[in-house]
Design a protein around this nucleic acid. Sequence first.
DNA 1: AATTCATTCAAACGATTGTTTGATACGATC
DNA 2: GATCGTATCAAACAATCGTTTGAATGAATT
Lengths: 213, 213
Amino acid sequence: MTPAQPTRDRLLDAAERLFAEHGFDGASMRTITADAGANLAAVNYHFGSKSALIHEVFGRRLAPMNVARLQLLDAVLEETAQRGEDRPTPRAVLRAFLAPALSLGRQEGREFFVLIARAHSSPHPELQAHIVNQFAEVAVRFGAALQLALPSAAREDLFWSMHFTVGALCHTVVNTQLLTLMSEGLCTDVDEDAVLERLVAFVAAGMEGGLDS
Amino acid sequence: MTPAQPTRDRLLDAAERLFAEHGFDGASMRTITADAGANLAAVNYHFGSKSALIHEVFGRRLAPMNVARLQLLDAVLEETAQRGEDRPTPRAVLRAFLAPALSLGRQEGREFFVLIARAHSSPHPELQAHIVNQFAEVAVRFGAALQLALPSAAREDLFWSMHFTVGALCHTVVNTQLLTLMSEGLCTDVDEDAVLERLVAFVAAGMEGGLDS
DNA sequence: AATTCATTCAAACGATTGTTTGATACGATC
DNA sequence: GATCGTATCAAACAATCGTTTGAATGAATT
């Protein structure tokens, strides 16, 4: 019997899930290939090495997510112009940045976003460099949009605010179960739209209010 | 020659530094013991296992940091009462929570805080449980203090806000070099007091402003 | 001086790691 | 129908992992 999906894709899926669950070092080639129903040598054949596999796992999801971010940002800017307003609201810009990330966590690539947040604090420097490259354009575009939304803010302030925002985002995606634990079940991430709005409200207020102080 | 510090402490120092740099799996017993100038078997003799060593590395720093947090919180509440005010400001409470963490990152345990932030997204479940236990009292005390500072806020909102705050904090401590990279040197963490005030301003505004929306 | 105890040491343990090899099977191309 | 390139396979590779062992060390106690 021939599986519906080619081996290469099954390897990526298995790797994504197992990396998210056990970390990059915790998931071995044997568990990955076994989970994918492939031979042990399959990863080295299709990707060359485990390191290259990790890069491919990221490349497969990162590009679409950042494309979605830029599209949403374009939509926000366009709608702003149609209304005759000269600048977008910080909330709209931030929502365009945050929504694709949380949305990606909702659908097929749910495990992936745990993974990307984990990579942010990963000890693999090459992985960090890879992520920085993938985010370069997004950082520039959203930096400019935020500068437009908050004209009185210093560029330095905006960078810091975005940094805090990314931190809150990553921590939310990865460790909401920890919050559920600490809040004794009061806070959960079942309603992801509500989580998004909470996050948007928080960072938008932080950005607007944290400047003049 | 007898080293100034006993082997046990040298092992903890080396482990703390190497765990922060290479991760828990990336730092091996051999590199740790070699860095500490001890025999390979030293860790198993003094701590029993690598896992127990990790727990000890955390226990050594976590307790003092959380004690400092609670002391600062007591000081804030006391000063508030002396002024005749019935509630503290959110900023003061948040500063009491954030300052010991950033301060710990400044002095001797600088590597440690990279480590604790990394542990937050670690794939080792026993480590997460350990951290949750250590933070239980701090969470309760600061939860109550924030409820006092923001009486109109729902308990659920406060939990989420604290969650975002911890995320921004961890990401700041661990990945400020990433921010420096993206901002092309504009943002650095050389002035840690300034970083603290930025962070306090951001999360305080997020907490106050993010609620009524 | 003899003994006890904590510590350090070199050496090896079995297990697991990522990777490589050479053979085998399958389909398309000539 | 022979040939070529892709893909999968079992098997072994060298390296490293955390841990254990048993002897050697040295200071403190009896």
